[in-house]
Write a protein that binds this DNA or RNA. Structure first.
Lengths: 137, 137
DNA sequence: ACTAATTCTATAAAAATAGTAGAGTTAATG
DNA sequence: CATTAACTCTACTATTTTTATAGAATTAGT
């Protein structure tokens, strides 16, 4: 399941993607349009900025805008940024690999292989969903 | 990601699946073989029992055994039993549907459709992984 | 009766999540 | 250059979920 953060991030990105090119949106606008607590959204937008998904303009008449193309922001990206690994266990993860503390031998682990299969399929599916594809629905 | 409970449940089921037909395994055996805290495993086995995945025999020489066929226990089943919805948001879930509190109109939600696509693909993949298929690896 | 196992309920400790507060910084404008 | 309106940053708090643990009750074989 997605955390609220990830969900809010997606909703914010969808909002930004629907604005005119070069338009700058204030946090409060996004918060009200997408029904997100404003102070919470501030943090989320900063995270999106640090991930180079959005850009910002400071000061009066400042705000946020999409930095990457709608086509280049996938569900997988946002999941990883806010919720971490896409794999079902850290030992099966590409980007967030960690051995299981209860695992005696990873190579003999019966679970890991199956979970890596799932990861590959889920990842492929999630990389197929972009902000652009969502807006078009 | 899977919770420890779900991971431990899978490991316990894998252990049971590898025993001889009609063999009964004590909790302590499973716990030691799979490196799971015994008292925690007790709860998990009870949940698996309530889900009709394992059966138990009480009293001296009691223990647990697989009730369903290895082929009929899927990763999707265990995920749902311990970690709930497979969908990324409750509003996109088949078995754990709930509307989002922040959603003003579900029919106009741009996220939901994409998440239902992901759910269908993930679910299909997870239903393809059975205890039996894991043991064979 | 004794022993060894599951069953059940309650509790506790730790971690993660969700959200809030408030001071600081930046930039436009008159 | 003061004012205003925006983003930025750090810290904190409250809640919920997760991960167990404790201990009494029940069951059944010998």
């Amino acid at each position: 399941m997605l955390s609220h953060k990830a969900k809010y991030a997606l909703k914010a990105l969808l909002f930004l993607a629907q604005q005119d090119e070069n338009h700058i949106s204030r946090t409060i606008e996004i918060a009200e349009a997408a029904n997100i607590p404003k102070k919470f959204l501030e943090q989320i937008l900063l995270d999106l900025k640090r991930g180079h998904y959005v850009g910002s303009k400071q000061g009066k008449f400042g705000g946020y805008y999409l930095l990457k193309s709608k086509n280049d922001i996938t569900l997988a990206d946002i999941h990883r940024l806010f919720d971490g690994a896409i794999a079902l266990l850290p030992c099966a993860s590409l980007n967030f690999y960690e051995p299981c503390s209860d695992c005696t031998s990873e190579s003999e682990c019966l679970l890991r292989h199956g979970l890596m299969t799932i990861r590959d399929e889920t990842l492929k599916a999630m990389q197929g969903i972009t902000i652009s594809s969502l807006v078009k629905k």
